[in-house]
Amino acid sequence: MEAGPDVPALVRELTRRADPARLRHDVEYLADRPRGRTHAPEAMARAETHVAARLAEAGWRTERQPFDVRWRPGTTDRPVGGSLSPRRVRLHRRLTGANLLAEPPDLGDRPAVLVGAHLDTVVDSPGADDNASGVAALLEVARLLGGLPEPPAVRLACFDMEELGFVGARAVARAARHGRRVTGMLCLESVGCFADGPGTQAMPAGFGALFRDAAGAVRARDRRGDFTLVVHRRSSDAAADLWRRAAGAADPPLPVVTLRDPRPDGPLGTLAGLAVPPVNHLGRSDHAAFWSAGVPAVLLTGTANFRNPRYHRPTDTPDTLDYPRLTAVAVATAVTAALWRPYGHRR
């Protein structure tokens, strides 16, 4: 099956079955309070139970995978300085958490594309955009793909401790590197905030000089924050193109800005960020753990604090999100996960 001709038809089919009210319900349930394994464990357990139940209802086989790591470099989940401030860096003596992983009942050991989103928040923020929006989109992807006559080779992951330094994602990425069961990864990060007014989209310092095409696309939109940013590398070019085409087939079309991170996958790409600090903004979520493990990955984002003034604040609440456009994000992600065939992937 060729991906090209199938994109518009699959978008139409999944859009008919998608429901913005379901996404809103999931966001409202998850984002009624802060949640985190270390600062709000009861809320985190409540959110985890909700996600597991929704995945099971959609027909996915769900497994809770605990992890226990020691002396792990990471970040604090408390609002200290900017997102890349050295003041956020921490050495965690011990972290105990768990990821939720799900797959279709008959997938077995076949290689698959992984769709992931993190469940935790920073202290004192209910995290509607960051990242109940991503989790709600992931749950809609589960419903949409689970309803296909032949569910594709896709796995889902709800990550723990993203705010502490991608701790849960690193555990999954390590397993993916050794087990070869994940051939590509799509990361849903802060995907529910859209701003249509001119000047509502900011860019990091040095961004325009490093990424002229993407910066030009933002300026051409009069700096309106009405698009989804798709960050990819050469290894995931095809996924970025699929996602852009799927978003363009939505009704109305969902604007997209694509940005290729020039670094290679693997440890060398991680080290390159030390030489050119502005590119580290491109690795600010769980996809970075998969890049480091050599797994092709794509970041899908509304750019977090560069658009959303409520980022990491108590005001990041469900009433501030755009649910029709969040639904379009979920549909485009489901289409991409179903059709993307990373190198070495056999369906």
Rank of each mutant, 00 (worst) to 15 (best):
G36T: 01
R35Q: 11
R110T: 07
P104W: 01
L14S: 06
A45V: 04
E103Q: 12
T49K: 09
W71T: 12
P41S: 01
V69M: 07
D77C: 07
L55C: 04
L119W: 06
A31F: 05
A18N: 09
P105C: 07
F67E: 11
T15G: 13
P111N: 06
E63L: 04
A58V: 10
R64V: 13
R33G: 09
P66N: 11
G116Y: 02
A112I: 09
R61M: 09
P41H: 00
A18I: 05
P66H: 08
P79K: 00
A18Y: 07
V89G: 03
M44R: 07
R24S: 13
P34N: 01
A31T: 14
A9M: 10
D129E: 11
A98L: 02
R46C: 00
L100P: 00
V11R: 03
A102F: 05
A117Y: 04
R93D: 08
R46D: 12
D26R: 04
P34S: 00
G116V: 03
V89P: 01
R46I: 01
P66L: 04
L114I: 09
R72F: 07
A43H: 12
P104A: 15
V11H: 06
E42N: 06
S125R: 06
T96G: 06
P105H: 13
G108W: 14
A47N: 01
A9P: 13
R78Y: 06
P20R: 07
P41L: 02
H39L: 05
D129A: 08
L119D: 11
T15H: 03
A53G: 14
R22P: 10
P86L: 08
G97H: 00
W71L: 15
Y29P: 04
A98H: 01
R87D: 15
V123H: 02
D77P: 10
V115Y: 06
R90G: 13
R54K: 14
L55T: 02
R70Q: 13
R17C: 11
D68R: 14
R22E: 10
R87N: 09
R78T: 03
V123D: 08
L100I: 03
A45I: 00
A53K: 15
T121F: 04
P105M: 03
S85A: 12
T96S: 05
G116T: 09
G59M: 07
D68K: 14
R88Y: 02
A53L: 09
V113A: 02
T75D: 10
E57D: 07
S125W: 08
V27I: 05
L101V: 15
T76M: 03
E103C: 00
L114S: 12
L10A: 09
S125P: 14
L30Q: 13
R22H: 13
D106C: 05
L23V: 06
L114E: 06
R78C: 00
A43S: 08
